[in-house]
């Protein structure tokens, strides 16, 4: 399932003009990533949940998007609790459970999930190609956007190539479980993929030159600003001010 699978749902968040939505979302994400106090983090988390609810994104989709970050947090945070230093709440031989670590782990977990929910809510509700065209309107360099678009196009192609190469290697007895013993085979797969991509990159570059590609990015999306878009920006601005007040008071 792709990140922008539900970008066309009928909801106020999806209907928000991407130029305003992505700008406001980016600012709100940076503010939320800077919070450290419990009241402001709780409010930010609540706000993120409201955004997800308003966007009508299916719960299963949101949970699937959260799966990888939760697994990473589950691996990282216990280590943090055991290595943070300071006052120990519990000790056994060389193991110490630190109070600072527990507080920091809770803060990181809350902040991380909030920011990822906001990312899904703001950026997962815009088609990726529309997002690139929005970024062009927001004066992001066109060379960078063209590279992003080309990369997006070829990632899926090479994921499929990699899957085929691995299948072929497995049929010949390659086994990931034997790890380092097959380092030569794994490196061979990388070489094949890189050589193919290098040759393809030359063909693509030549084809693009023939079509008159000059590095500029020309979006065809039309954006319409409505009073509701400006109201949503104003609400986000008020929300950011409230979060900062809770953080700094």
């Amino acid at each position: 399932m792709e990140f922008d699978s539900y970008a066309d749902l009928d909801s106020p968040v999806q209907a928000w003009d991407p130029r305003f939505k992505l700008s406001a979302g980016f600012l709100l994400i940076l503010v939320c990533a800077s919070l450290s106090k419990a009241p402001s983090l709780a409010a930010a988390g609540l706000g993120a949940l409201v955004l997800i609810t308003l966007s009508r994104l299916p719960l299963l989709f949101v949970l699937r998007m959260l799966k990888a970050p939760i697994v990473l947090l589950a691996l990282m945070l216990p280590l943090l609790v055991l290595t943070a230093g300071g006052q120990a709440l519990w000790s056994w031989r060389f193991l110490h459970l630190y109070r600072n670590g527990l507080i920091l782990a809770a803060r990181i977990a809350a902040k991380s999930l909030t920011v990822i929910l906001l990312f899904i809510g703001f950026f997962g509700t815009v088609r990726l190609n529309t997002a690139f065209q929005t970024l062009e309107r927001l004066k992001v360099p066109s060379t960078l956007l063209a590279i992003l678009l080309f990369t997006y196009r070829y990632i899926y192609l090479y994921l499929e190539d990699m899957r085929k190469l691995l299948s072929a290697a497995r049929l010949r007895g390659y086994n990931l479980q034997r790890g380092l013993r097959h380092i030569g085979t794994s490196s061979g797969i990388l070489v094949t993929l890189l050589l193919r991509s290098y040759e393809q990159s030359e063909r693509v570059a030549a084809a693009m030159r023939l079509r008159g590609f000059d590095g500029s990015f020309r979006g065809i999306a039309r954006f319409h600003r409505s009073p509701a878009d400006l109201l949503a920006v104003a609400l986000t601005a008020v929300w950011i001010c409230l979060l900062l007040w809770l953080e700094l008071r």
Binding site: T143, A146, I147, L148, L149, F150, T151, R153, Y154, I155, L157, Y158, L159, D161, M162, L176, Q177, R178, G179, L180, I183, S186, I189, L190, L193, L194, R196, S197, Y198, Q200, S201, E202, V204, A205, M208, R209, F213, D214, G215, S216
Partner: peptide, 27 residues
């Protein structure tokens, strides 16, 4: 440092490196 003709090359090679880095080794 990038000229327009190099954009597709950088992106295509970048995508290949991205996919290659997903290959796991058991350690």
């Amino acid at each position: 440092r990038v000229r327009p003709g190099e954009i597709p090359k950088i992106a295509v090679m970048g995508a290949a490196f991205f996919v290659s880095s997903l290959l796991h080794f058991k350690v």
